[in-house]
Design a protein around this nucleic acid. Structure first.
Length: 741
RNA sequence: GGACGGUUAGCUCAGUGGUAGAGCAUCGCUUUUACACAGCGAGGGUCGCUGGUUCGAUCCCAGCACCGUCCACCA
């Protein structure tokens, strides 16, 4: 079998190179991918001087509107290919290949995300096997370890993407911690600071005691759990809480001002019996404490008893109540999730242990009224699954008010279209109820804040600067500073991907981009932030359309997840059925709804590969030469019918791709090729080829139809079509991936 | 609690105001100058339930049930 297009015979020579039996992707895919990569055509600007290939300008032209870019959603360096990537990257590849064949300078921009917490967690797990932790190693050595890890494994996913045929320009691959990218990020921070939007504040934040860092609300995951709801006596009031261990941090009781039962108490300060933190651990005692009673709308009259204890230090909602009513804040839990010295004799206990003990003690002194079982949602760290502990912490925040307005307006006025349209609502909901973004993280792997703290004890004055400040501290005259040890939220850097990932000239040529293809779970986490970042820093939207594809669920409709063991490995399918069949299978099912993954659609894809292969073989056995392939005037009814169907499918499949109806496009292409072309026309062609009158026309139509079909199918199933194209005796052959569609 | 989506053949899903479709699976026949990963043909569905609009509803409307995803400050 001749496999390499460069070694193919010239026109006129007969070539039977399909061999015997079914199409075998194993003999084809790796070879074809390497031909593509070597051709240089993944990079629309940098074509190799390869014999027989057209020059860039000839093919693409110069006009700006011929530039087309898709930003690959950044895979994490810890990432390996999963079904979500398979769907997402395949759809993008269909688009980019389609646009490339339509004559655009199509750039598919790849990159990887340093993925702060995720990557740090992976390396920490490695260290754990060696019996050490990151503090044993120290910051510098630890970061060196992470880099080592990144250099070794960080690009694995790129090779997996190559396996599915992704035609990204790997020469442009960026990493969010590349020097230029990092510089942009720090400048962004300073820019926001100078606008007065970055500020430092002591607030109760979501804290992961294991990772030792704050998290944004989008980095939490929730688990339904049965918890006990404890009814506790506070003087004449009884209230319900799931977290009795935070009671020593209570600084008020809150009721709803509309609540007839309690509104008369608002403003009063009461003295109540509480558990004492003094004395011996084994001897629970009662102590009088004073609490004020505040009225606040957030209190639900229906829930529990309608009275809430307010613990500003350990609950985000309570913190907000505290701010509204100027309540003091008492921290009783530390960064490691243990009770601190303010908890007196309970200090040192883990919160769960403390809860048990405190409940026991309250029982024995008569403060516990009753317990009931309660369905509760518990926030957990999205990386390590540790229960989140809200604690007060000094963090850096980005004011979201103005940025959210930008992002909201862009969609409202239609400059950015979110498709399907019903995803606009969750987008608006988030932006309308947005809180300031906690952008600092207390981990080590990431972009260190461009912040310097005065070294003097008690001063700690912070200066935001790209360089080590040389001037005296305006607060204490000291001249020595230390760089902040905190790093930025990973999403702070991914938000800049559409422009920080581009060189100056690429920025000029390719920004703004076109369509963004993504899954709905990162609509706010990523898409909204790219939108306001693009507007803020480039003055232009990064893309005009956001297409949200379905989420892949198990056949039973459950979420696919590693921890649940419900995930499947797309590489398994590629090995077993080939990349084309796998691509076919996933697009076949991706109709817009969430996908209940059914691998039998890959079977259909494999069969379709074989059908294309064999139909091509039949054409080749009858057509020894495919000179100038052009539309030929049909003569018989069958000829007319097939040409008409072909012209129709060319137009409608293109339209469907451009409107993101990938599945529909594939279904109609399948129907056309299998039924109209193979079942009907090929059968009639057999008799037409036996007739002197029709033999020549039939050959021309077969040549034309197979060639056009290969082009139409190519964006979906690039390997098999490219291979066949390389076998057919086409005059002036180059590569199917750059044939004009 | 809210939002959104779903409920059609054994399975996964399309679809239309007027005798219901695909892929996979099943059954029968066929090795005919591409393909048995095939061809031809067949079986299989009161299109979640209850009302309403209509000459006519799987499709439109209302209510209900169940399933799912996301969001939310019920401590």
């Amino acid at each position: 079998m001749t496999k390499n297009f460069q070694k193919l015979p010239n026109k006129g020579e007969t070539q039977f190179s399909f061999g015997v039996g079914a199409y075998d992707p194993k003999l084809v895919e790796e070879k074809i991918y390497s031909i593509w990569e070597k051709s240089g055509f993944f990079n629309p600007d940098n074509l190799p001087a390869q014999a027989g290939l057209p020059k860039a300008k000839e093919f693409f032209g110069k006009a700006q509107d011929k530039n087309y870019i898709i930003y690959m959603p950044l895979p994490n360096v810890t990432g390996t290919l999963h079904m979500g990537h398979l769907l997402n990257n395949t759809l993008q590849d269909v688009l980019i290949r389609y646009e490339r064949m339509r004559g655009k300078r199509a750039l598919y921009l790849p990159g990887t995300d340093h993925a702060g917490i995720a990557t740090q967690f992976v390396v920490e797990k490695e260290l754990k096997k060696e019996g050490i932790n990151r503090w044993d190693l120290g910051r510098e050595k630890f970061i060196a370890r992470v880099w080592e890890w990144k250099n070794k494994y960080g690009d694995l996913i790129f090779n997996q993407l190559r396996k599915i045929g992704v035609s990204a320009d790997w020469s442009r691959a960026r990493f969010t911690m590349d020097q230029a990218y990092s510089d942009d990020i720090l400048k962004t921070f300073v820019h926001y600071y100078e606008k007065g939007w970055v500020y430092q504040g002591l607030r109760t934040v979501n804290w992961c005691p294991r990772c030792g860092t704050s998290l944004s609300e989008l980095e939490l995951e929730y688990a339904d759990e049965k918890t006990t709801l404890y009814y506790i006596k506070y003087g004449s009031f009884t209230l319900a809480t799931t977290r009795p261990e935070t009671k020593f941090g209570d600084t008020a009781l809150a009721v709803n001002p509309k609540d007839e039962r309690y509104k008369k108490y608002i403003g009063e300060t009461i003295e109540v019996d509480s558990l004492s933190t003094d004395g011996e651990l084994e001897k629970p005692e009662i102590k009088k404490i004073k609490l004020q009673i505040v009225g606040d709308d957030v209190v639900d009259i229906e829930f529990g008893t309608g009275v809430v204890k307010v613990t500003p230090a350990h609950d985000i909602l309570d913190f907000e109540i505290g701010e509204r009513h100027k309540l003091p804040m008492i921290q009783v839990i530390n960064e490691r999730g243990r009770m601190n010295e303010s908890a007196g004799k309970y200090a040192g206990l883990k919160t769960t242990e403390a809860r048990k003990k405190i409940v026991e003690d309250m029982k024995s002194v008569g403060l516990l009224v009753k317990e009931e079982l309660y369905d509760h949602r518990i926030a957990k760290c999205y990386r390590c699954n540790t229960v989140i502990e809200p604690i007060p912490s000094k963090q850096w925040f980005l004011k979201m008010k103005e940025l959210a307005k930008l992002a909201k307006k862009a969609v409202e006025n239609g400059k950015v279209e979110i498709l399907p349209k019903n995803f606009e609502k969750p987008y608006f909901d988030w932006l309308e109820n947005i809180r300031d973004w906690t952008i600092s993280r207390q981990i080590w792997w990431g972009h260190q804040l461009p912040v310097y703290y005065c070294k003097c004890a008690d001063c700690d004055h912070a200066i935001v600067s790209l360089e080590q400040p040389k001037s005296k501290c305006p607060k204490c005259d000291c001249k020595e500073y230390r760089r902040s040890e905190e790093v930025l939220d990973t999403w702070f850097s991914s938000a800049l991907w559409p422009f920080a990932g581009l060189s100056a000239s690429d920025l000029k040529n390719y920004y703004p981009g076109n369509a963004l293809i993504t899954a709905r779970d990162i609509l706010n986490l990523w898409v909204a932030r790219m939108i306001f970042s693009g507007l803020e820093f480039q003055g232009k939207l990064p893309f005009s359309k956001v297409f949200i594809h379905g989420t892949i669920l198990t056949k039973e409709g459950k979420r696919m997840s590693k921890s649940l063991g419900t995930g499947v490995d797309p590489l398994k399918y590629i090995n077993e059925y080939g990349a084309d069949a796998t691509r076919f299978g996933i697009i076949w099912q991706a109709n817009g709804q969430d996908i209940h993954w059914d691998e039998t659609s890959i079977t259909a894809g494999r069969k379709f590969c074989n059908k294309i292969w064999n139909a091509s073989k039949f054409v080749l056995s009858n057509v020894s030469e495919m000179g100038k392939i052009e539309k030929f005037k049909p003569t018989t009814e069958a000829d007319k019918k097939i040409i008409a169907a072909l012209e129709k499918i060319k137009i409608s499949s293109g339209k469907n791709i451009e409107t993101f109806n990938f599945s529909e496009a594939l279904h109609e292409i399948y129907d056309f090729f299998w039924h109209d072309f193979c079942d009907e026309y090929l059968e009639i062609a057999k008799s037409q080829l036996a007739e002197k009158k029709t033999v020549e026309t039939t050959k021309k139509i077969l040549s034309y139809a197979i060639f056009e079909s290969l082009k139409i199918i190519h964006p979906f199933m690039p390997f098999v079509t490219e291979e066949i194209y390389g076998i057919l005796p086409i005059a002036g052959r180059k590569l199917l991936m750059i044939e004009k569609l």
